[in-house]
């Protein structure tokens, strides 16, 4: 792979998405871009990268960037965030009533927002007077297309999903499974780049931003935290992935060892709740 072409592509990738590829990982670029190279009519990934540098075609470049996103996800990933959501946000909402707004800020192929919607269906009847709005966004158009369709293979539906939930919330669709319409319609899907200003989406009670900051450097993470901070209500909660935290990156949020993954705005009155089950 020509280092100049690779560097050019890596620079574009980082500028547009924040995703960093390490120069040592040219095999990753090679394997992720092989299909795009073929379908764009190039002999090899090397040719594709050269074309991106010397004769850029926006559509091909976007497809290549999309292919570099890591979309690995599963239903009810890590479970604890969903326990937090039920105990700390939804059940207490009963007292206040009104609308609870949740943002799944890097929703990949939809498993995270669908898990939130399934959880909601299970608790909603205890919470008369409470409405839930779920906004699900991602950078990747390919992911959003799949998420909107809500069709998953037999392999995908068993990752994280108990069989009782599969039977309750999905319908067979040939060899695949399709999320039931009521669940699909309960989610608003939108393309959004975490690096962009999110003000148009309004403010949220809970933001899930999980397993995406790990691909960014410190400066990018800090910028994303600033963006999220602006969209989180003062008494809202930010939920990060199991291997992510705010330490050394931002002063805007604080966590608490007893509730891993859960963050509130610094200096504001939101009480840090006790760990679920504690």
């Amino acid at each position: 792979m020509n280092p100049q072409d690779l560097t050019h592509f890596a620079t574009l990738l980082k500028a547009r998405t924040g995703i960093e590829v390490d120069a040592q990982k040219d095999y990753l670029v090679q394997s992720r871009l092989a299909t795009i190279a073929g379908t764009a009519g190039h002999e090899s990934v090397d040719d594709l990268l050269r074309a991106i540098r010397t004769a850029p075609d926006e559509r091909v470049l976007e497809a290549a960037i999309d292919a570099m996103t890591t979309n690995e996800t599963l239903f009810f990933r890590d479970q604890t965030p969903f326990d937090h959501l039920r105990k700390i946000v939804l059940e207490p909402a009963r007292r206040k009533g009104g609308t609870v707004r949740i943002w799944s800020a890097a929703c990949s192929t939809g498993q995270e927002p669908y898990s939130i919607a399934m959880l909601w269906e299970e608790v909603a009847h205890h919470l008369p007077g409470v409405r839930l709005e779920i906004m699900a966004t991602d950078y990747s158009n390919a992911c959003l297309t799949k998420a909107r369709a809500g069709i998953y293979s037999a392999f995908e539906v068993q990752r994280g999903l108990p069989v009782q939930k599969l039977m309750k919330h999905f319908e067979p669709d040939g060899p695949n499974w399709r999320v039931k319409d009521n669940l699909r319609q309960s989610i608003t899907w939108r393309r959004h780049n975490l690096l962009d200003n999110p003000a148009a989406m309004g403010r949220f009670d809970v933001i899930f931003c999980r397993n995406v900051l790990i691909y960014f450097d410190r400066a990018t993470r800090s910028k994303v935290f600033d963006n999220l901070n602006g969209q989180l209500k003062d008494d809202g909660y930010l939920i990060l992935g199991a291997s992510e935290n705010v330490m050394g990156v931002t002063e805007r949020f604080r966590g608490d060892a007893s509730s891993p993954g859960l963050y509130v705005k610094t200096g504001l009155a939101a009480p840090m709740p006790r760990a679920v089950g504690a």
């Binding site: 037999a154 392999f155 068993q158 990752r159 994280g160 108990p162 069989v163």
Partner: peptide
Amino acid sequence: ANEYIFKPFDMDTLRDK
């Protein structure tokens, strides 16, 4: 039955289920 696994499956799925 308590759970249901589709073949083929992998170790992560088995552990999960």
